[in-house]
Structure formats: C-alpha cells, structure tokens
Amino acid sequence: MRSAYGESLVNLGTKYSNIVCVGGDTTDSLKTKKFGEKFPERLFNVGIAEANLVSIAAGLAIAGKISFASTYAAFIPGRCLDQIRNAICYPNLNVKIVVSHAGLSVGPDGASHQQIEDISIMRSLPNMRVLVPADAPSVKKLLEKIVQIPGPFYVRLARPSTEELYPEETDFEIGKGKVVTDGKDLSIFACGTMVSASQKASDTLKKEHGISCRVVDMYSIKPIDADLIYKCTKETGSLISVEEHNIVGGLGSAISEVTSDICPTFVRKIGIADKFGESARDEEIDSLLHKYGLSPKEIVRNALELKKREKK
C-alpha cells in the first residue's frame, strides 16, 4: 500500500501541478521520496514536527494547493489533533492526510507506535472523511478520487505488504462499500488488512461449517454506506465488524450507529478490546494479531458464537 501511495503521488503530481506533499522525516517509509525526486520544489520535509507539518499543509491549501500530509499514524493524528481540528477541519481546507503504520502490525516498536485509536478520533471531526483501503489497487483508485473532491480526507494505510484483492481497473466510490465475497447467512464488514483475513474466515466457515458468509470491504468509514448495511441486515441477518483498531469508536461503532437508527440487529465487533498493544518482531505479527483476536481463526470462532446467539 505504501508503494502504491508513492507511485500514485508521482502520477497525480504529473497531472495536477498544484499538488504538494509535506512529510516528517518518514519520506522513505511513506514512499513520498519518489514524489520529491520528481518534483523537488513540491516536497517539504519539515522533520519531526507533526504539529508544524499539518499546519504548513493547511497554509499551502489556503494558497490554492492540494496538500498531502504524510507520516506514521502514531504521529498524525497522535501528536497534532489540535492543529488538524482547528487549522484543517474547522476551515474545511483541501488537505489529504495519508498515514502509514496504523494498527498492531508495525513491527517491533511496541504500543507507543501502534495507532489503534485514529479511526475513532478522525471520524469524530466535522468535515473529515475517513478511508481505510485494503490493498494497493484500492489505494491508487481512492487517491485519484480524493484529489477531485475538495476538503479534508484521512487515508489509513498499514505497514505490511498486503494481498491484492482487486484488479487494477476496479472502481471505488467514496461513501460506498464493496462486496468481495457474497453469502446469505451472515455479513462480515472489514477494513484494511482485515478484509483478506475475513475472506479466509469466510472460506473456512463455508467449507467446514456450511455457513455462507458475505464479506464487505467497508473502505469508506466516513461517509459510510448505510444503504449497504441495511441491505446486508435484511438479507443476511446479524453482522460482524473486523478492524485492526480499538473496538471503541471504529468501524464497528460506525456500523452500530447505522443499525440502531434504521435496522436493529446483532453486531459482533472484532477488534482490539480497548487495550494497548505490545511489541512483536515482523515474523511474530501473525501471532500477535491472533492473540488480539484478529486472525481468521478468531473471526471464525466469533461467527460461530454469533450464529448460536441468533438461535436462542
């Protein structure tokens, strides 16, 4: 996903001469260095000063630029919420915040660098829209969309390489979700790295338990696809949400806000259970995700429990 971001930024920069990028000593990791090599006068590396980073991006937006602001999710929004709220969202400026290293899967840096509250934080801000793509093709397509839509966006990327779920030509709409696997007994809504995990869980549920599970990539968390949530509730009954994020305020909470208003049903939230993460080497990431309930095996277990609950 990071490589897709870097490539897309170069391509978009070629098409739109008013695109600029502001980074914070993570241009190698975020792959925005490629943009700087192509357009050195349009990349601004401000160092480890995230409050300045987003404020400078806001100033460039006032000057008519499409500003991309990028670093690790632990630092944006982790170290500059005040500036995002008051300098970007309140005046509704054209700043696209694209971050990486979100969730638990950041490697050995531990809880201080595992941003698991950002979806909740960012979707609570007026004017901010929140996207969590699942693979490289969706990153590219969503970036093409957001440069054409004025105003702030928050795009959340993960550190690890991810399985490609979509052909390059697949289209994505802001405010919509996408059914990646159809089913009739249960719907799983996932975002980011958890879409592929949910697909694997759906395969197991079908093969080993005879449960036909619909998997929805809910890459647009704000605005969210209320029509699709309603449709799935009516057609498949109970819902499961899966996210590499705290269960408080994230995708599951956003779905529950919809169901409580228009289509009451059970919503089983699978995520990080309101606790901090812990460190793990790259080769231990799968074990860490399993420990925190985010492996395909844990999704299967939760789905079986939910189906039992439906029968009571």
Rank of each mutant, 00 (worst) to 15 (best):
A57M: 02
D25H: 06
I224T: 11
F68H: 02
I299H: 07
D109E: 15
R42E: 12
I211F: 05
V195M: 06
A87P: 00
A87Y: 10
S187A: 15
I116R: 01
E310M: 11
E257H: 02
I224L: 14
K291T: 09
I56N: 04
A226H: 12
S202F: 00
T14Q: 15
P137G: 04
C263D: 09
P77F: 01
N94T: 06
K176Q: 12
V20C: 13
V46R: 06
K308Y: 11
L186M: 05
L157T: 03
A73D: 11
T265E: 09
T170V: 04
F75Y: 14
S256E: 11
E173S: 11
F276C: 08
A102K: 05
K178S: 09
I221S: 05
G250V: 06
T26D: 08
K206G: 03
Q83C: 08
R309T: 14
V46Q: 08
L306E: 10
K34I: 04
K38M: 13
R281H: 13
L30N: 15
S253Q: 11
H209I: 08
E50V: 00
A58Y: 08
A58G: 13
F44A: 07
L30P: 00
G192T: 09
I121V: 14
S124P: 03
K234R: 14
R159L: 05
D28Y: 13
V179Y: 03
K269G: 02
L142Y: 00
S100Y: 01
E168Q: 06
P152W: 01
I240V: 13
S295R: 04
A87I: 00
V95R: 04
V95E: 10
N127H: 14
E284Y: 05
K269D: 12
K206F: 07
S202E: 11
F276R: 01
Q83D: 11
K312R: 12
L186N: 02
T14P: 01
L165I: 15
K140G: 11
H290V: 00
L93C: 03
V106L: 03
D28S: 14
Y90Q: 12
R301P: 00
L165V: 03
A134E: 13
G110H: 02
V215F: 06
